[in-house]
Write a protein that binds this DNA or RNA. Structure first.
Length: 209
DNA sequence: AGCCAGGCTACCG
DNA sequence: CGGTAGCATGGC
């Protein structure tokens, strides 16, 4: 199975995922981008359910806004994002990202600039580029590694960039496809491709790969 | 009760 | 350098 076939199977099974944004509708592109950046940071090693609560708290305190985040005290932000875990670190990360976002002045950030931000590593940088800016960067996370270590060509790259290169070289350069593909991978891993392998018997890739 | 979640940084040898 | 402890909540 090639990547396109794997994508088609997942899409057939789970359909369109519609990840972001969860609060702001599409009226204000700038706010939408910032919400996605906040989500990308808050979800680091954390279940999305908890992140949703944190984002909702920020929204209800009128803090889903770069300028307002910057002015607020770390302690207050930490309190609001508590459900997302690591709240002391993440409140600092949000401030660093808010400051960066404002200096962008509505331009698209480079991957290098994002990686220079404290609190942003490769996966978060690529998530921001792909989901907020619609730039064609394939997001590689623990789920991606788990599923592709198992199905298809049983990939076993070590470095993040090697994983990403494989997807970039074997898929059309289409951000919309990258976006949906990553979301579908996550969905399949939440339901079937578990760490404890308890659901492998129900994996529809078994019969194929 | 213990493991896991849409990682990253700092520090250690 | 490569490896790993620390960060922290909530769901199952």
């Amino acid at each position: 199975m090639n990547l396109q076939e794997i994508y088609d199977k997942l899409f057939e099974k789970y359909g369109e995922q519609k990840w972001w944004p969860i609060i702001n509708d599409c009226k204000d592109e700038n706010k939408k981008k910032f919400e996605i950046i906040v989500g990308a940071i808050l979800t680091q090693n954390t279940s999305w359910k908890n992140v949703e609560k944190a984002i909702k708290n920020l929204y209800e305190s009128n803090l889903l806004d770069a300028k307002k985040i910057l002015k607020e005290e770390d302690k207050r932000i930490a309190e609001l994002i508590k459900p997302a875990g690591y709240y002391n670190q993440k409140s600092k990360k949000l401030k660093a990202a808010a400051e960066f976002f404002l200096t962008l002045n509505r331009k698209i950030p480079t991957r290098e600039a994002l990686l220079n931000l404290w609190g942003v590593g490769k996966e978060t940088a690529d998530s921001i580029l792909l989901y907020a800016y619609n730039e064609p960067f394939f997001v590689v996370d623990a789920y991606t590694k788990r599923i592709f270590s198992c199905i298809g060509n049983e990939l076993n790259f070590v470095e993040y960039d090697e994983w990403q290169k494989f997807f970039h070289e074997n898929l059309p350069n289409d951000p919309r496809l990258f976006n949906e593909f990553h979301a579908l991978i996550v969905e399949h891993c939440k339901r079937i491709c578990l760490k404890n392998k308890k659901m492998c018997k129900d994996c529809f890739f078994n019969a194929i790969s």
